[in-house]
């Protein structure tokens, strides 16, 4: 009950950041003051505008190749958003559908799906990811596929449990009696009650996808370091941390706030929807 008050705040703050993040990603070409890839060797390692030695127009300074940090941050949001939506969404779709079927139909469907999930989860995820990328080759596609392939089980487990619980409700039984087919009952009576849970998980997963992509960029398994990715920026900034901290700090903060916002948004949704449904 105490949370009643804090609740909208959490959703509000995280929602605001996510909106900014999405807007930056969508409108990057219009917002970014510079070309994120354009190098200018006369202007390397410029500090942010509020520090002496800066150049006007380079708000967050430049990196060691003279590229505008703010513009790279904004374009980096694009890649983060693509990963969040496609990888997070893909894992969500596959995992939720399988989980829903397993939890609702039970029987051999459930046995089959649950076995696969158990076996899948026995692989250590980091090794699994590196193995997959070794097979698929580095690049954004591989990263997205790896995240989907590894993380769908996360959804499958939780959604299966939710579907199972929902399927025991009396209204599901009576839907069967009033002549809705099994499949229709699943879609009409069970699925809508699971959507909040799916939303919560999806939000968390988007955060995870963003950070996983950043880590893989950091170790150079994702996009090449020429592209503007937060992980790549962090990797590069690390080497010049003592004389050009801004190259590291801004992408780190952006990454942190984005991942935090996704998880807080998820938690906020959970609190918001639980009292109504439970």
């Amino acid at each position: 009950m105490v949370d009643r008050h804090k609740l909208p705040m959490r959703l509000w703050l995280s929602g605001t950041w996510i909106t900014l993040f999405v807007a930056a990603a969508l409108f990057a070409p219009f917002i970014a003051p510079h070309d994120p890839l354009a190098q200018d060797l006369l202007y390397t390692n410029l500090p942010p505008v509020w520090i002496s030695g800066s150049e006007p127009g380079y708000y967050f300074g430049t990196d060691s190749l003279g590229r505008d940090v703010l513009s790279r941050l904004i374009y980096g949001a694009r890649i983060a958003l693509v990963v969040a939506v496609i990888a997070g969404g893909g894992a969500c779709l596959i995992g939720s559908v399988l989980g829903l079927f397993a939890g609702f139909f039970r029987g051999w469907t459930d046995v089959l799906i649950s076995r696969v999930v158990d076996i899948w989860m026995a692989f250590p995820p980091v090794l699994f990811a590196i193995l997959l990328i070794a097979v698929l080759g580095t690049g954004l596609h591989s990263v997205i596929i790896a995240i989907i392939v590894i993380d769908w089980t996360r959804f499958c487990r939780v959604i299966r449990a939710e579907a199972m619980q929902q399927s025991r409700m009396e209204y599901v039984e009576s839907a069967l009696v009033v002549g809705r087919g099994r499949f229709g009952t699943m879609l009409v009576e069970v699925l809508p009650n699971i959507i909040p849970a799916i939303g919560v998980l999806l939000s968390l997963e988007m955060g995870i996808a963003v950070i996983v992509e950043a880590i893989l960029s950091f170790v150079n398994l994702s996009l090449s370091s020429d592209d503007a990715t937060w992980g790549g920026m962090i990797a590069e900034g690390r080497t010049v941390i003592y004389h050009a901290w801004w190259i590291l700090v801004f992408p780190l903060v952006a990454l942190f706030l984005t991942v935090l916002s996704f998880s807080q948004f998820g938690e906020g949704l959970k609190e918001r929807f639980d009292p109504v449904l439970k």
């Binding site: 009396e170 209204y171 839907a175 009576e189 009650n193 449904l277």
Partner: peptide, 15 residues
């Protein structure tokens, strides 16, 4: 038809 024991779980909360 059935008139159930628990009116809470007999109606779908999202419909």
């Amino acid at each position: 038809a059935i008139i159930p024991q628990d009116p809470l779980t007999a109606l779908n909360p999202s419909r």
